[in-house]
Every structure is written in C-alpha cells, then in structure tokens.
Nucleic acid binder design. Structure first.
Lengths: 196, 196
DNA sequence: GCGTTACGGTAACATTCGTTACGGAAAGAG
DNA sequence: CTCTTTCCGTAACGAATGTTACCGTAACGC
C-alpha cells in the first residue's frame, strides 16, 4: 500500500462542514463547493469520499443523529433520577445556546431537504421513531403508575413541545431566550405532574 | 390603456404555485421555472409580476400568513366559548388532513428558506410574534384568573407543541395520524386545566 | 377599422450547479 | 533510489439556474 488517508475522519470533517454550511448559509446554498470550502478542501476530495451529493447529505444526517444520541445517552446515564433524566434529555433538544441554536437550524434544513429525498425522509422517520421510543421509556420510568397509553401520549406531547420551541428559538433567538425555554419545559413537566 | 390583466389574481395564482412546488417537490426544486409550470404559464409572466425570485417567495409567504390568519379569525368568531376558541385555533395549526399536512410542509420549507434570506426571516418573526400574541390573548380569555406571566408561558408552550406536532406529522403522516394529534392537544389542554 | 400600448411567451445570457476525467505529487515497497 | 500505487487538486463538461432582452399579439381608445 501507499499513503493511507484517514477516511472516517475525513468523512466526519465533511459532514461537519455540511452542518456548518446548513447553519450559516441555509439549504439553498448547500452546494458541494460550499461544503468543500467549509471543510478546507476542494470538490475533488468530497467526490472521492462520497459517490454523490445525496450520499454526502445522508452521511451528515446519520452522523448528526449518532452524535445527538451519544449526548443524550450521556445525560441519561448522569441523571440521578428518572425525572431528572427526562428533563435533561428534553432540555438538550431545545435551542438554548449558540451551539444548540445552530443545531436546530441544521435540523430544520435536513427536514426541509428530506421532503425532496426519499432516503433522507426514511432516515428522519427512523430516527424520529427512536427518539419517540426513548421519550416513552423515560416517561414510563418517571411515572411508573401511568397506563402505557398515557405515557405514550405525554411522551409525544413533550417531544413536540421541545421540537417546536427549538424551531421558534432557532428562527428568533431574541424572542425565545434560554430562560423562556427552560420555563416552558418546567411548566409543561409540572402540568403533567412530571416535575421533581 | 390597453388590455388589463388582473395582476392581484395572477400574483395569488403564482403564490399558490409556490406553495404547490414547495409541498410536492421541496425547497431545493423551488425554481422559477417549476413555479411557472405549476401555475400553467412561463417564466415570462413570473418575472413580469415579480422583480426577482426572492420577491416571489416573499409574496407567497405573506399570502400564506394572510390566508391562515383569516381562517383562524373565522374559527375564533365561530367558537362558542373562549376555551372552544383556543382549542379550535390550536387545532388548525396541526397537520390533520392532506391539506394541512401540505401546509406544514410548506411552512417548514419557508422556514428553511428564511435562514438564507433576511427579509424572509423578518416576515417569519413578525408573523410568529402575531401568532404568539393571539395565543396569549386566547389563553387569557380561557383562564382569566391566571397571572399574565402564566398565560404568556402557557401560550408559548401550547404553540410550540402544536408546531412540533405538525412538523412530526408532516414528515411522517402514518406515525402521527389525526387522532393522535387530537389526543395530544386534548391531553395538553387538560394538563394545563384549559379543557372544557 | 386602425393605431397604440401593455401583455406575456420565446429565447438567449452569464453563472453556478453536480459530476467526471485527468494529472501531478506524495508515500510506501523493494 | 526507483517504481508503483493511492490520494486529491485542477479543470472541464453538460445541465439547470436566475435574469434580461426581444418581439409577436391581443385588446382598448379613437
């Protein structure tokens, strides 16, 4: 063999470049050239790592999910109680600092792109289903006395509220500051009887 | 003068074509030619009605807001009680049939486009602020005994839940059917003590 | 009926897109 | 040191984009 490039590391760097472009320039300017520029390389490397643009987006979407899954599992493991775990996991889905605001913008960009790409929408649905299952499990642990149907409904309601709040905050951070979002989460958990 | 074209009607038809393309092909395929084809004309008419593509998108976005505002006000006027009005207004924000699912897809498309267009994001923020004020007013009417801060928080929480649920349903209608969304709304209103 | 004027379709423009092909260069094998 | 193999930047391709210019045409005033 000759020189060996660290392909996984390059693929991850390119995926992060996809996130950057999506966060700072939007879906319409998410071109192969823009990604290459953001990654500090040329289109040559991009097209040698991925067969085409769609595969690049798919990889970036999968890696985004994987990253957030790892973060969520760490939060869950670090939590002192089921209700603490539920709150922490929901909280990380909101857009409460510059990084998570960027994350929400990227999330919305991928969602919009998915409507024009069957494979992206498939990835979205699978990940959303896993997210829903996770929330359901956390709610069941936080309220063991509830019937299963109640836990399922409340889990989706909580997930939807967090997702919507993150979208609001991503589009207008000044109007939806961090403390407002924290208050939303606290009020909602309290309303459902899931606060500490 | 010579022949007089019904410019407002044409502009509305073109805006509706923008919605159609956004709903059926996604933001990435939202081109001037695609809009013209969907409207049954050529790019010539489009570019004679709007100075450029961005102005076309802006008009379509404004008209979308105006349309939904009228629908919401009709629901509000037809409601028999403040709580009925609140529920009806929130319900119409969800994606419970083919038309409202399309509406949610379009809404997400415009939001994603707004991140790359200062004027679009400005329109979004203004409309979102009006939507927030409306919900706040409806919540105050539905729970007159609440302090203002409580009403404001709950209004945003309700709006975020509806928006998130609509996004979930738009991306995966089979996993988030109409009755599930109705149940989400009912459970959330009940949790806040705002159900009938 | 005729001339004028706005209307909008046609076609072209430069630019940018995704993708492909090529070639120079760097690193390991012998 | 040399040969070989992999890596990736360069440059080009055709297609598609937003936008502009042009021109036939249909309707209205007279």
């Amino acid at each position: 063999m000759s020189r060996t490039a660290d392909r996984p590391a390059q693929e991850e760097a390119l995926s992060r470049a996809v996130w950057d472009v999506l966060a700072q320039q939007g879906l319409e300017r998410l071109t192969v050239r823009a990604v290459a520029t953001a990654a500090g390389c040329t289109t040559g490397l991009v097209m040698h790592r991925f067969p085409n643009r769609r595969a690049l987006l798919r990889h970036a979407r999968e890696l985004l999910h994987e990253t957030s899954r790892r973060r969520v599992e760490a939060l869950e493991a670090a939590a002192g109680s089921p209700r603490e775990a539920l709150r922490a996991v929901l909280r990380q889905g909101m857009a409460i600092d510059a990084e998570s605001i960027n994350g929400s913008v990227v999330w919305i960009g991928f969602l919009a792109a998915a409507f024009a790409d069957d494979e992206l929408i498939e990835i979205h649905r699978r990940n959303n289903g896993l997210w829903r299952q996770r929330l359901e499990r956390l709610v069941r642990a936080a309220a063991p006395e509830w019937p299963a149907a109640r836990a399922a409904t409340v889990a989706v309601a909580l997930g939807a509220m967090v997702e919507g709040a993150a979208a609001f905050a991503a589009a207008d951070p000044a109007a939806y500051p961090a403390d407002l979002q924290e208050e939303l989460l606290g009020a909602t958990l309290t309303a459902y009887g899931l606060a500490d």
